[in-house]
Design a protein around this nucleic acid. Structure first.
Length: 553
RNA sequence: UGGGCCGUCGCCAAGCGGUAAGGCACGGGGUUUUGAUCCCCGCAUACCAAGGUUCGAAUCCUUGCGGCCCAGCCA
């Protein structure tokens, strides 16, 4: 499988890379990295970054590392590390090297000592409150810390003490000595090391002080020889600091940070805190609930890696804040699934149809193609018998205009089978339709009837041969396009985001379906076999509906 | 109101001084044993606004207007 199916559209990062290649800026190399913090599950927004970084490496025959930005042990865990690796692989990418920021803790520490020796960093005993108070505001400069002019010797010994565990959490921090009057707040002596006596998922108790993101990320990039360090827009203000650190340290390699706009998808939320809240408060079944925008959720819903990659390519790459409509994602999903999923028949809400003139006990094993446009995908056997089940929706006693399904006295084609006419409608005491008596035209198998046109085609299953199933019909999780803008995002949860339809009947060929396999239930939508399936009850998640060209008013 | 960034069709997005690509959505038509797919056709005299430079401006300049981000010992 090729990851780059289509010619890549132009974007500003490719322009930069092309130009860098032309001027031999990074010795003609392209080296990227995807740097998640292992503090949550990957979501569709990460997919954009993953496709970008790994995609660029593939396209330019460069490299892309998977690097865990594990500098805050309080929030990170092994579980997340594993889920991230799994998701990146599932999306179809292989990293050049697996790295962790924690691999560099030793070098980071040594570099910090160098900064101190050069008078570029100092140990501050200010409390977080004092640091905040002295930072100034957006419009006023900050004030120097009383500790700012501590001697190099004292800084060195204090920093060593921090490393040796002599001090309590928060007692001291190491700060870069830059400019408390800078209009860029990130340059007002940012903290680069803090004391945290906590266990780290990889380094255990080796360290009791941990480096901060701004200090760590640029050095990690330099160590790995990254050429283009791609990140989202909110780090734009951090770039001067990124460059400052590498400049002071005079690192042999100088990566270039480039920022792009993060993905914002309508009707979804990607804040880790809020996603976590949805899970812990049980508004969804878990991180892999098909309504979640997580990679795991999309996967369980039946969305394919190819669809996600296609989506990430189509939405473009700019520095503009933008909101992508759901229809774009849905289009990508349908495009892949239409092309690759096998067709099958399933009845969500069955209505019994007895074909009165069909011989009792007779069964015809019909051969139906698995895909209308791709005969190479083979065929399957679908049994036809006297009693079949059709969709309740496909019969109407009082049809709306343009209705072309079954009506009393009318004819319809049973998909892949015969044309039947509805002769009689059987109702229960309450007047509900419980059964249809139909007659079939034996001369319509594989051919159109003589002298009349039958425009409707409906799906069906043989009652006796069909299998029990449950369909989980998912809809958007929120009722408004930008739930994040609400005061309380929970108040705009869509109460109808999941509709469980039980009592469905599906064709017998589905008995051997593998978990996670996707099908098109003809005329209904795309469905994926869920892990909750049992032998006597198949469970299918609806990935997306079919496009609906006709809407009953 | 300090600093950084951004403004091209309903939503994305190409365009980089030579006279507005493409996708999604939408509307119309055709094919079809899935009201699916597929195939045609339509969809910005106009690029946030106003001035200016130029033979020529979405592209250059000026001034406005609008939006996003930043005051964690988070990333």
């Amino acid at each position: 499988m090729s990851i780059n199916e289509n010619p890549s559209p132009a974007n500003f990062i490719r322009h930069i890379i092309n130009n860098d290649l032309k001027t031999n800026k990074h010795n003609g190399k392209v080296a990227t990295r995807f740097p998640p913090e292992p503090n949550g599950y990957l979501h569709i927004g990460h997919a954009k970054s993953i496709c970008l970084n790994f995609g660029l490496a593939l396209e330019y025959h460069g490299t892309c590392n998977l690097r865990f930005d594990d500098t805050n042990p309080e929030k990170e865990s092994e579980e997340y590390v594993e889920s991230i690796k799994r998701d990146v692989h599932w999306l179809g990418f292989e990293w050049s090297e697996l790295r962790h920021a924690s691999d560099y803790f030793g070098q980071l520490y040594d570099y910090a000592v160098q900064l101190i020796k050069d008078g570029k960093a100092y140990v501050d005993s200010s409390t977080p409150e004092q640091i905040r108070a002295n930072r100034g505001t957006l419009t006023e400069p900050g004030k120097n810390s009383p500790d700012r002019d501590r001697s190099v010797e004292e800084n060195l010994s204090l920093f060593q003490g921090m490393r040796d565990g002599l001090y309590a959490d928060g007692q001291y921090v190491l700060r870069a000595k830059i400019d408390m009057a800078s209009p860029n707040i990130n340059m007002r002596d940012p903290t680069i090391y803090r004391i945290r006596r906590v266990h780290h998922q990889r380094t255990g108790h080796d360290w009791c002080l941990y480096p901060m993101y701004d200090y760590t990320h640029c050095i990690s990039d330099a160590i790995e020889g990254i050429t283009h360090s791609l990140c989202t827009l909110e780090f734009e203000d951090h770039r001067p600091l990124y460059d400052w650190v590498l400049e002071q340290l005079n690192t042999p390699w100088r990566p270039q940070q480039i920022e792009f706009a993060r993905l914002q998808l309508e009707y979804t939320i990607v804040s880790k805190r809020k996603l976590n809240q949805l899970v812990t408060e049980k508004h969804v079944s878990g991180w892999d609930d098909p309504r979640m925008p997580t990679i795991a959720g999309l996967r369980r819903a039946g969305v394919t890696p190819a669809a996600i990659r296609d989506f990430c390519e189509r939405i473009g790459l700019t520095k503009k804040d933008s909101w992508i409509e759901m229809s774009v994602l849905e289009h990508c999903i349908r495009e892949d699934l239409n092309q690759n999923s096998l067709r099958v028949m399933a009845v969500a809400e069955p209505l019994r149809v007895v074909i009165t003139n069909y011989p009792d006990g007779q069964v015809e094993n019909l051969t139906l193609g698995n895909h209308p446009q791709r005969p190479e995908l083979g065929s399957r056997t679908v049994p036809f018998a006297k009693t079949v089940l059709i969709e309740r929706d496909d019969f109407s006693e009082n049809p709306p205009p343009k209705y072309k399904r079954l009506v009393p006295g009318g004819e319809v084609r049973l998909r892949g089978s015969y044309v039947v006419r509805c002769d009689e409608v059987i109702k229960d005491a309450d007047g509900n339709v419980v059964e249809l008596r139909c007659s079939y035209d034996p001369d319509t198998l594989g051919k159109n009837p003589e002298g009349r046109k039958v425009k409707g085609v409906i799906h069906w299953v043989s009652e006796a041969h069909s299998l029990a199933a449950e369909m989980r019909l998912y809809d958007r999780l929120f009722t408004v396009p930008q739930p994040d803008n609400e005061d309380n995002f929970l108040s705009v949860l869509n109460p109808d985001s999941l509709q469980v339809v039980s009592g469905c009947r599906v064709e017998s060929s589905l008995a051997t379906a593998a978990p996670e396999s996707c099908f098109q239930f003809e005329r209904i939508g795309y469905f994926c076999l869920d892990k909750d399936s049992g032998a006597d009850n198949l469970v299918f998640n609806r990935t997306v509906t079919l496009r609906e060209g006709w809407v009953k008013e």
